[in-house]
Nucleic acid binder design. Structure first.
Lengths: 136, 136
DNA sequence: CTTGACCCTGGACCATGATCCAAGGCGTAG
DNA sequence: CTACGCCTTGGATCATGGTCCAGGGTCAAG
């Protein structure tokens, strides 16, 4: 059975060695074994949780949340994994709604600003400095 | 003309005193004046940039970006203000697109997961752990 | 055996966005 | 005048997610 050193594991997963050790310190990725010398040895299978971490990060999960997901995964608790994904989905949707409001406000400002003339007539300056902002 | 102490300003904007001073250290919010004693004095008008900071933060802007927006407002250069607003708009749109991708991925996973049964059949666990993910 | 690549630990350092503390000054009500 | 609350400064601390370094040990090829 092939086992990997930390450098190989890191390279294959596309992360830095220090990052792998950081994940280990954070309790996310414990090596399968150690040599007498202390060298970490990983099985090929360890690539999966490591990639899981990266992908879950892309989906907006924090390392802490990812730790919980990994624990759930080990516990083989499908219902709770789904629940965590639903919570994160709701969170992402709230963030999108917020940004959409901001985009609409910025877009209106940009479209109504001539780009020249009296600063007092610039809708962007008026909106940044004024009282008449849409409170979130 | 009414002027406010830092405590009153902070309370009215819903932030901590330390946070106001932190924003000042970060160059975002310089008090209108100081008393002989060193006490900061703010005009009522300072509430606007302070509230702007909070709103922009909620929408995902960093303090550094907010500083740039506020600086533009002070520079009162219509063309540059408009240009910066356009850049921010593009940035917001990129953030939205990224979150939408995140949402779609999560949504698909949640909708195809039964929430029970064999973890080996859980699409969330499979997607996060598997090899067959769209690398971004 | 020597060389170079790799690995170990522990701790420092980075940026971000705060929050909190100590030691002392200020301001106002009673 | 005294007390109490608010204010000042600089620096420490926190959490997050790493990155980097020193000083040393290990491993594999030549």
């Amino acid at each position: 059975m092939t086992s990997l050193g930390i450098g190989t594991l890191a390279k294959r997963a596309g992360v830095r060695i220090d990052t792998v050790r950081y994940y280990e310190r954070s309790g996310l990725l414990v090596p399968e074994s150690r040599l007498e010398s202390g060298y970490r040895r990983y099985s090929e299978a360890e690539l999966t949780p490591l990639r899981f971490i990266r992908r879950a990060q892309v989906l907006g999960f924090s390392l802490k949340e990812i730790g919980e997901l990994l624990a759930l995964s080990k516990a083989r608790n499908v219902a709770r994994v789904k629940h965590a994904a639903e919570l994160k989905l709701a969170d992402v949707e709230k963030r999108i709604a917020s940004l959409v409001r901001m985009r609409d406000a910025l877009s209106t400002l940009v479209n109504t600003c001539s780009g020249h003339g009296d600063p007092a007539d610039c809708p962007i300056l008026k909106a940044l400095g004024g009282e008449d902002w849409n409170e979130h």
